[in-house]
């Protein structure tokens, strides 16, 4: 059905989904978490949304007015996105082990 599902989910893609899973909800929050550039993260969000891994909505006009700021557009994971993320996390667990080892080593040498 979707391109992402057939091809590999990229590392960056997995990061963006993970950011949403952690509760970061709008564009620049997600970029802060992932450290991706806006020119990379935004197209990714749009693609995920098209592929129904992610859905988004504007926050209420009133909330924005009360806080005296423009409306935010919030993103969240869909069920499909959550599934794919869990597959990706499993696949990237090797990478995590690399990081874990890297983090663990300096500690032991200290």
């Amino acid at each position: 059905m979707t391109r992402v599902k057939r091809e590999r989910l990229t590392y960056n893609g997995a990061l963006v989904l993970q950011a949403l899973a952690r509760g970061y909800r709008y564009g620049f929050e997600i970029m802060d978490f992932t450290a991706l550039e806006s020119g990379t993260a935004y197209p990714m969000l749009r693609r995920f949304e098209l592929e129904k891994l992610v859905r988004s909505r504007w926050e209420g006009e009133r909330t924005a007015q009360r806080d005296g700021r423009p409306r935010r557009r919030y993103y969240e994971l869909t069920e499909e996105g959550r599934k794919l993320l869990s597959i990706a996390l499993e696949r990237f667990s090797d990478h995590r082990r690399v990081f874990d080892d890297a983090i663990a080593e300096p500690e032991s040498s200290r």
Partner: peptide, 9 residues
């Protein structure tokens, strides 16, 4: 940097 991303997007 973030503003420049608008074109890529």
């Amino acid at each position: 940097a973030r503003t420049l991303g608008v074109f890529q997007d």
